[in-house]
């Protein structure tokens, strides 16, 4: 599958683009430690992510999921340990020259003073990816249609619901044509219907781009819905990794406890 054609159709268009075709990345994290003011958040964390897979990291609130993502994208520096992206250290400037990373934040982090279209096209404009407006407009339109928000280009972020903001944030990430997308708590504070819509939007990305995805969530239902593999994070360590079925069969008491608690809550009607 061509990773680019569904985002922007370059064939038949005279739009000149400096976009490289994306190549899903492999990630290897070894002995990662991080503490904030004496509070150890990540402890000797080891994790592998295969190119092109969707790895969902689950864990209870405060287990270090978001901190892990911030390390992978380079917003935090580890106290010790290393993160390798296709064999290169994440802090090596060459990594950013060879690969594009995108992150969808828990708060969506849309820029409130500009429209949805301007949010999505910000990367393209700032890095002068296209030499004319047609290429940018096409990418904005295509990415919005992938996340099911056709025709919302001129709306301001303040006019969007929480779920729509998350989907615009996913579209903004997708517009970068990234090799790696990190998604932080995509369904937090959303109702079950909207959570399913977000899950569909994340699954839909796979049909359009070959990309490595790491999603962190405490929503076991979403994890089962979108994951190729699930990693369970507890107290700053990965304690179990496997396919959704393998995780369901896990005998690890912490994993069992996490899954059981989640399903009990769902039966109580708080989730899907």
């Amino acid at each position: 599958m061509s990773a680019r054609t569904d985002i922007v159709d370059e064939e038949g268009s005279d739009t000149k683009s400096s976009f490289k075709r994306n190549t899903p990345v492999a990630i290897k994290i070894t002995k990662l430690d991080k503490s904030f003011r004496g509070n150890q958040v990540l402890r000797n964390l080891n994790m592998d992510v295969k190119p092109g897979e969707t790895l969902v990291v689950i864990g209870k609130t405060g287990s270090g999921k978001s901190v892990l993502l911030r390390h992978i994208i380079g917003l935090e520096k580890p106290d010790s340990g290393e993160i390798l992206i296709n064999g290169m250290d994440v802090e090596d400037p060459e990594v950013r020259k060879k690969h594009r990373f995108a992150m969808v934040f828990q708060s969506s982090a849309l820029f409130n003073s500009i429209t949805v279209a301007e949010n999505i096209s910000l990367y393209l404009r700032e890095h002068r990816v296209f030499q004319d407006e047609n290429g940018i407009r096409q990418i904005v339109s295509n990415t919005l249609s992938i996340v099911g928000l056709e025709g919302k280009e001129d709306i301001m972020p303040s006019e969007l619901s929480g779920g729509m903001k998350k989907r615009v944030a996913i579209a903004r990430a997708l517009a970068m044509n990234p090799d790696l997308i990190l998604i932080d708590e995509p369904t937090s504070e959303l109702d079950p219907m909207m959570a399913r819509t977000i899950g569909d939007a994340i699954l839909n990305l796979r049909k359009h781009v070959e990309v490595t995805q790491i999603v962190v969530t405490h929503d076991i239902d979403l994890a089962h819905y979108i994951a190729d593999r699930i990693a369970v994070l507890d107290e700053g360590r990965i304690i179990e990794v496997g396919t959704p079925k393998e995780i369901d069969r896990s005998t690890n008491p912490i994993v069992r406890n996490f899954i059981t608690t989640q399903f009990e809550r769902e039966e109580g009607g708080t989730r899907l």
């Binding site: 911030r70 990373f101 992150m103 934040f105 820029f111 990367y123």
Partner: peptide, 25 residues
Amino acid sequence: AELGSMSVYQEIDALKTMDINPIRF
């Protein structure tokens, strides 16, 4: 207030992940 709000609501981090230097931008 504007930059403070952008810092608190992770918009500055979002710029960094897009390789957009917040000082330049």
